[in-house]
Design a protein around this nucleic acid. Structure first.
Lengths: 196, 196
DNA sequence: CGCCGTTCTGAACGTTGGTTCCAAAATAGT
DNA sequence: ACTATTTTGGAACCAACGTTCAGAACGGCG
């Protein structure tokens, strides 16, 4: 019993994530969060703890989502593995509004000074690395990637390209250019029928 | 005349840059800068203006350095263009201590909220894009890259890979893995002699 | 040697930061 | 309607922030 909450926890967390995603951890004040969520500071504290805990919460959830998406990409049919890689490279992580990926932003901002964040970031990247490797192996079995190539190295290259596209997106490079880069990346790892 | 300065401006700017590079703009206080430089806050203000101006200063200088390095890479002998690209991909920008590139960190932290920073970042990236394109063209003339390939797209791919490696570096991915990715990237764009 | 102009230091200022606290408000069960 | 229990908004708090200022420190120059 007791007074019921006026807010939906999920919606609030989305607003919080949006704010942190836009202005970063050090760049957002609790007042900003209060404004973004419509909740008073007192409510935020009683519901989620302090600023650090709240950030940790949305960051962990974001990383978990990243892990899940990676697993989902691996789970498709093998003969479309390369297509899924292409689609992944073409659709940036942060949504259509040039906000960018929270994982990338957070790693850049906090990994140097915050060991916990660094550990979670690294884990997320290693999951991505693994999923890329698996996708490359699928594409190899499907005959779309040279079976002699090292899948771990090639997967790493795809991941690096993806993170690079993400970085260029944050800088404001236009989407057409980024999509061309993505297409070129896939092309460059695609097995071409032996010429002549 | 008047009392002479006790500090070397260049050394101070290096210390400032190091600090901003480690903890970011919003994450470093003027006290941090005072500690890092050995100068009192008053001296910092009288010598460089406020925190914003000081950051702008070191950021502009860093971008100018990036532009210069890009031009220097283009200026070498054509038949070693691919080697220069390989060397660039292998040596991360932020120096040997996992501090990472200031341009990448700043773009991630501030481009969304600060139009001036965004503009300078984008200009730096476009300079890099251009220099990568030129290097690819050199490698094409030297017969190391498929002359039928689109140099702009391939240059973009190299740049994206570089920025991706930088991002993974900040996350703590080990250097051996990153170097393998760099080598794979160069391999994937290298023209192979037609197989039988 | 003493004046002058500049730089240096550290204290002081007002503001904003994160956090805590409390009285009022709001339901569910009795 | 009353009570128990929880949430709410906002005032209150102190530390940290960016910034300014006054006076001490210092070298060059007459």
């Amino acid at each position: 019993m007791g007074r019921p909450r006026k807010f939906d926890e999920h919606d609030v967390l989305i607003a919080v994530r949006r704010q942190f995603n836009e202005t970063g951890y050090h760049g957002t004040s609790v007042d900003d969060l209060s404004r973004a969520t419509g909740l008073s500071k007192g409510s935020l504290y009683s519901a989620f703890g302090d600023k650090d805990a709240l950030f940790r919460r949305i960051f962990d959830e974001y990383c978990a989502g990243s892990d899940q998406n990676a697993a989902a990409r691996v789970a498709g049919p093998e003969d479309q593995a390369l297509d899924r890689l292409r689609a992944w490279l073409t659709a940036p992580d942060g949504g259509p509004d040039r906000r960018g990926c929270l994982l990338a932003k957070t790693t850049a901002e906090l990994a140097w000074e915050n060991e916990g964040i660094a550990a979670r970031s690294l884990a997320a990247y290693e999951t991505l690395l693994e999923s890329c490797r698996l996708l490359i192996e699928q594409a190899q079995r499907a005959g779309q990637v040279d079976p002699a190539a090292d899948p771990e190295a090639l997967g790493g290259l795809v991941l690096a390209t993806h993170r690079g596209i993400e970085a260029l997106l944050k800088a404001g490079v236009d989407t057409a250019t980024l999509n061309r880069i993505a297409a070129t990346a896939i092309d460059s790892i695609t097995l071409r029928p032996a010429s002549a």
